[in-house]
Design a binder for these strands. Structure first.
Lengths: 220, 220, 220, 220
DNA sequence: AATGAATGAGCTTTCATTCAT
DNA sequence: AATGAATGAAAGCTCATTCAT
């Protein structure tokens, strides 16, 4: 019964991923050195290349694995919610909650990932589409039920994601610089409300919610 | 009427900017060499440093100068339009028209600019805020007139921009790879319609437009 | 009668030389830019090339002109001194006095000049030889008079200069760093005494001077 | 008994140092490229940076390691010599012998090292002080024995080194240009004799040596 | 599987110098 | 004589990746 085998277990893959998230968040993808990640994961530099093709692959893998988890979580969050319009709200709330709950990961996914040539220009983010397809599915379902008007699910889905993403981006950047952060919760409601009413077949039937206060003033 | 005055005029600044846009769009910011830009602008490498601090400064300057022009153009486009909801539609149409009309520039502003550490992490894009403030102004004006409901102008503005930007991004990326492009015109209408209804005080009064067809299928 | 012609006089040559001494002393020869010198001399960059072949030429000219003055001064200092041994002492005292009285110039001549490839490897410092020949002359004269023994004037001259120069160098470096400086006056006496006795035909006849105290302790 | 083991041994440090001495002597420190050194040492450019911080560090390391050896050798040379005055002569002879026996190294230490900003302005040449302290030690010992008069060991030490160094410098420069070289052996005796008599308590007791002929004529 | 020493490609930027005005 | 905008050469260093052990 081996005592003191603190990190021997072959969880090297995970250790590298976790180390990379921290290092990328701290120094940025471009300034992060493989040797930094290796040191933090307590493996040799070369070992990283047994698990990943190259530095970009580490970043991409972070994206894929974490997106997989996010998709799972999203689906779970939506499980108990039936009304398509309420599902839209749930989606927005879930999205921002993840950003708030996983700062380092959010920084990597929001910022560093976008700074990668490979990701932006060559990679097909299948996982992202799957994530967004959940939204398109909500719309299609709502359209079948007659709750949502005839909107193009694809255009709407990208617009929705763009809105969530931009606000998440601003929040992460502000958070990174320790500037006064605006409320992500309020943002979730605001964005959700615009889209709910924007796609609803009968927007007049939607009860007017009192908007949560205090938004973004500090940024302009 | 001077024919063939190849490089006499002291418009070196503009020549460098224009050359840089082409080179950045073609090779990407990171792979673009100063000497590439200099060659295309028909100046010496060192001359670029008489007009710009460094490579990043060239990129940032492209952003600032072109955004200045876009803001001007946007304001002109809105001049004849009175109805706040119609102004939202005009904004969206204008935004996408610029993307379509200036491919190289759009590629630089959509892609290369985002790949710049300096821009993303250090630069305060005042011009972007000014651009977006036009949208916030539309909302405030509409709220005063009672046409637009109580939405947070800031959150809405970022959501609106995020939606436009994401779709523009997808279009530019698809365009870059010569993949079948979806219709930006249709997207403009779709996004505009969501936001118009999303922020309208009385959405039921908005006539249902027949959505333009054919969206995004090629991307998924 | 021209009023207010502060710098119009065609003393540009001198203005450039003086500016260069200051700039070289302050930033070092390598880091000094021609434009720095031009700015301080209040002339255009190109103007410097009307008066000097290149940057090295400015440095060399400083050496030549200032050495010319030093040689003159040295000869004047020696004028009233007849005894060859005393002339050696006078030489040493004069050398160190110049170092102490002209800090910026000393820094340029002691440090920056030596850092110049051109000066060290290509230039024939005729002026330096003339300066040292004064010492060789003292020796030869002393030998004719029988006061100085059969030493090789050339070897002795370089040894003497080396000794003066090394101590001057240490003092300038210490002075530059604002470290506690040792006494140049005491050093003059010490070095002079070694050489006086070292070359004297009859050293026993030389009265033993009480050495000045406090030397160099701070440097080791 | 392995013949032909060209680069297997992990003596890369030494190989780089030796290559650097040759390259620095041949092309000068400033014109020597890292790739030149790497090629001569038969390692990759980057390998040099595994062993040295930068180009200056290579130069400084040459100084430190070689000075360490010189100090050792000096101490050995002095081992059998008891008389302080004779020890001074031994010091001078040793110094010049090293210059003559290691031409490339002498060129680097005499010339290139002095052309280095880092070395001249920032570096504290501890090893040099140790080398010179040997001389100061000789003086102190001689003073205790009453053989050497009351001279300041510090001033004398720098003067002695300056004298040796200047003559070595002139010889190396002349040697470099293939000009007629003067005799370093004769110079050793000449300089030694000046300092021996210069610091001796009883110079009259020193037998007059016939000076070695032919000095320096070719230089003036 | 793991290591880590070794590799080598890649390019911005400065600034002395020129020369048209 | 004077200007100063324009030129263009030149190389150190980093670090992702490899591969012998």
């Amino acid at each position: 019964m081996p005592v003191d085998r603190p990190r021997t277990t072959a969880d090297k893959h995970d250790r590298i991923i976790d180390a990379a998230i921290e290092v990328f968040a701290e120094k940025g993808f471009h300034h992060a050195r493989i040797s930094d990640i290796a040191a933090k994961a307590e493996v040799a530099d070369g070992t990283i290349y047994l698990y990943f093709r190259n530095k970009d692959d580490v970043l991409i893998t972070i994206f894929e694995e974490k997106m997989g988890m996010l998709i799972e979580g999203l689906k779970q969050s939506l499980e108990g919610v039936d009304d398509p319009l309420e599902r839209i709200r749930t989606f927005a709330r879930y999205h921002f909650k993840q950003v708030k709950d996983h700062e380092a990961l959010a920084e990597v996914l929001q910022i560093e990932l976008r700074l990668s040539n490979k990701f932006l220009k060559e990679y097909r983010p299948t996982q992202l589409w799957e994530y967004l397809n959940v939204f398109a599915g909500i719309l299609r379902d709502g359209q079948e039920r007659g709750v949502i008007r005839e909107v193009d699910p694809f255009a709407s889905m990208w617009a929705f994601f763009g809105a969530l993403d931009e606000i998440a981006m601003q929040w992460v950047l502000a958070n990174k610089e320790r500037k006064l952060r605006f409320s992500l919760d309020a943002s979730a409601e605001a964005v959700a409300e615009i889209f709910v009413r924007g796609v609803a077949a009968n927007p007049s039937a939607i009860p007017v919610a009192t908007p949560l206060p205090s938004q973004f003033e500090s940024l302009s």
